[in-house]
Amino acid sequence: MPILIKDRSMVTPREAIAEGDFSIGSNVYRREKKVVSQVIGLVTIKDNFVSVVPLKGKYLPRVGDLVIGKVTDVSLSTWIVDIASPYPGVMRTSTSLARRFDPIKDKTRKIFDVGEVIVAKVFSFDRTRDPMLTVRSDNRGGGNSPYLGKLVGGRVIDVSPSKIPRLIGRRGSMISTIKHYTNCKMIVGQNGRVWFKGNNFEDELLVLRAIQKIDREAHTTGLTDRIKNFLEEAKKNMPTPSKEKQSDKEKRSEKKS
């Protein structure tokens, strides 16, 4: 059972990775006893398991995923949500709200309107039907499940969905690092959308730059430490916002005079 390619190296479609009895993961397939890549990506080989992490690609919904979407259509009892995948997310009042929905009294538009951004959970999806979303959190166990519902303010950016695991980090280490240094609120959707909201523009810019850095360097090792250093440095060199505003005002007044 020879492995034909080094772990973590790049492959192109139809490039053989290994030969023999390997168990296969995502983005690879078997052809004439060989394990072959389907996409451009990086190989991961663990013991007997071969898979490829794609460098690009669309998000395919999976049950249980947390996604960030934008409401694109509202009807009497459903919302259609764009979740950056080939399929639109469908959210029904009957399955998605925490409280009872009375179609006579309540209006769907008052809960979520077109253009609003929401975090939701995929609770059913298969090849034949569009993904169903919900904002009802299953808090039965009393555990702290993530916030679901409307997102007010803040910013949303898109990154490649295949890089989301790096952005979250091992047990959320990367996110907590970013949050710690910038005091921003941050929600990461599995569909490659990231929402964040900070106290001021500089902090938000810093988060944005950190996310872009992760998106670019997702395949490298020791990324969490580098992001830590990056944030630390940036935070040090950042002028305090109040001061900057003052100086701006001074400049303006000078110009006027």
């Binding site: 192109t12 479609p13 139809r14 983005n27 389907q38 996409v39 451009i40 794609p54 460098l55």
Partner: peptide, 11 residues
């Protein structure tokens, strides 16, 4: 197509 990350059998 390959650049778009679409799974392919071959180029």
């Amino acid at each position: 197509l390959a650049d778009a990350g679409i799974p392919m059998r071959d180029l």
